[in-house]
Write a protein that binds this DNA or RNA. Sequence first.
DNA 1: GCCAACGTTGGC
DNA 2: GCCAACGTTGGC
Length: 153
Amino acid sequence: MNYWLMKSEPDVFSIDDLARKQISPWDGVRNYQARNYMRDSMRIGDGVLFYHSSCAEPGVVGIARIASAARPDPSQFDPRSEYHDAKATPEQPRWCLVDVAFVRKLRGVIRLERIKQEPALARMPLVQRGSRLSITPVTAAEWNHLLSLEPSP
DNA sequence: GCCAACGTTGGC
DNA sequence: GCCAACGTTGGC
């Protein structure tokens, strides 16, 4: 089983939105490396750290799991979508998505600021200079360490 | 709003 | 294939 960190702007799609829907397609990924992770490496059941970006309190806010294999992202074919890609066709799709299922919210935000203080997490792409990738792999050790930072109930 | 870093595009 | 210009990301 693999682990992932997936970024979302809470104004667009938050952990509460996922909690409400329980399962949701993770659409709009338009970066080849992120796409390749979804297409080539994700498996149903993989763990996901749900990260809020571009907001007042950037950080990990919840846990989800991968709930489907990759399939074409329909928004690439829709001219009215902000994710439309004129070079993609149903015969030759360029972008894919996976379904993500809600597991739980954390008891508090594990803030980026906090994550940066942890030597054990220093190799996460998240804390590396200039890294902007919205989907990144997480090691089992990083997963466990990060979740150990969750406040006690 | 600023800006550093990175990815993509397209002319040559 | 190079690389300048441009667009995007995302923390601050």
